[in-house]
């Protein structure tokens, strides 16, 4: 994964986590983003958070990622 891709993944993952995990459900629905049930949205947000965390780890330890190839 290149640095540019890692930055994109960090931004997209963080946006997903912020939207579906940390905002109140009523606000999400009023914005027309009420896809699926509440727990489905929370799972999407959780996966977004995971992608953001792994991307941040990749950006913090670039040499480790390079050596693993």
């Amino acid at each position: 994964m290149s640095t540019k891709t890692a930055i994109w993944c960090l931004v997209i993952g963080a946006i997903l986590a912020l939207l579906f995990l940390f905002l109140p459900p009523k606000l999400i629905i009023s914005w027309g983003l009420g896809i699926g049930r509440h727990n489905d949205r929370v799972l999407v947000g959780t996966i977004g958070l995971l992608v953001a965390v792994v991307s941040a780890y990749r950006l913090l330890r670039p040499t480790l990622a390079e050596n693993s190839k």
Binding site: M1, L50, V51, V54, Y57, R58, R61, L64, A65, N67, S68, K69
Partner: peptide
Amino acid sequence: LIVHIMGR
């Protein structure tokens, strides 16, 4: 994701 991107 961690094994794939950062290795073991």
